[in-house]
């Protein structure tokens, strides 16, 4: 009995500590200017206000950045899901020359950190005139090895007999892909969609490098930029953080089962 109480006490306290930054963030975002910079710190607003959010959306116009983030995350997710699923399917269900070699090369490329490619990619996009456009974010996100790998693993488990019978029924390769593989792979696609969406939403370094108009910024970049000017306005910055975090939080809470399954899948070694 005592042991159980201790265990729960520990779990609840550490749970509270884990959530404390969020609680404070939300609470401070509803405070008036300067009311979060007091000693002793306030946990709850003394006067509840929406001022910070109003400032963000009127004067600082973050709605544009919110829109950018949504648009880019959705587009990158859709495009990469399409490309990755096609490639994953090919690697899982076809035999062709160089298959193993290509796949191995792709897998081993995963140890190369993305930072290595940033400079040349930047120069390349400059030559295309894509810097400071949405294409600068979409292009490098069109396909990725991790996604191909995840889909391949999943599709390999789909019995060949399903494909064979569809072929006998006269289905062509593309029909097999989108009538059989895609529906059956839906769980892994949903998982990957959440991963990609959140990854794009949360990404910072790359958008920081390639976007330089404030109206092109994604939310994290806009937020970091705001931080430069408003270091002394914690309440405003907290409201900005809430807006940045809220969408991913909602998506996670709604689809957490898929997300957590995805982490476990990713951790399954070949």
């Amino acid at each position: 009995m005592g042991k159980k109480t201790l265990l729960y006490g520990f779990l609840i306290i550490s749970g509270f500590l884990t959530l404390a930054p969020f609680i404070w963030m939300v609470s401070a975002s509803f405070m008036l200017d300067g009311h979060a910079s007091v000693f002793p710190p306030r946990f709850l607003p003394d006067e509840f206000t929406f001022d910070q959010y109003k400032t963000l959306f009127s004067r600082l116009d973050v709605s544009r950045n919110l829109l950018n983030s949504f648009f880019l995350s959705v587009v990158v997710t859709l495009v990469s899901l399409t490309f990755n699923s096609m490639a994953g399917f090919a690697f899982a269900k076809y035999r062709f020359a160089g298959k193993d070699a290509i796949f191995k090369m792709l897998l081993s490329s995963m140890v190369i950190p993305a930072q290595v490619t940033m400079l040349p990619l930047f120069l390349m996009l400059k030559e295309f005139g894509f810097l400071n456009t949405y294409m600068a974010i979409i292009i490098p996100g069109m396909a990725n090895v991790f996604g191909i790998f995840l889909i391949r693993q999943f599709v390999m488990a789909i019995p060949d007999s399903l494909i064979e019978s569809a072929r006998i029924d006269g289905a062509n390769d593309f029909q097999i892909y989108y009538k059989i593989i895609i529906p059956l792979a839906a769980p892994v696609l949903v998982t990957l969609a959440i991963f990609t969406f959140m990854g794009t939403w949360n990404d910072f370094l790359w958008p920081l490098i390639v976007l330089n108009d404030s109206e092109m910024y994604t939310l994290p970049v806009a937020l970091a930029n705001l931080m430069g000017e408003h270091t002394k306005d914690p309440e405003l910055m907290m409201a900005g953080s809430v807006i940045t975090i809220l969408p991913v939080m909602v998506i996670f809470l709604a689809l957490q089962k898929y997300y957590i399954k995805g982490i476990m899948m990713g951790s399954v070694k070949e």
């Binding site: 979060a36 000693f39 937020l223 970091a224 957490q256």
Partner: peptide
């Protein structure tokens, strides 16, 4: 509990860095 402990993982690093910057404030930080 799993959900609670997992919450920070999905959040935007830039945003939580900003939150923590204020948590670490020598005078007014939590």
């Amino acid at each position: 509990f799993r959900l609670v402990y997992f919450m920070p993982v999905v959040t935007t690093l830039v945003a939580v860095s900003i939150v923590w910057r204020f948590i670490y404030h020598p005078e007014f930080g939590l």
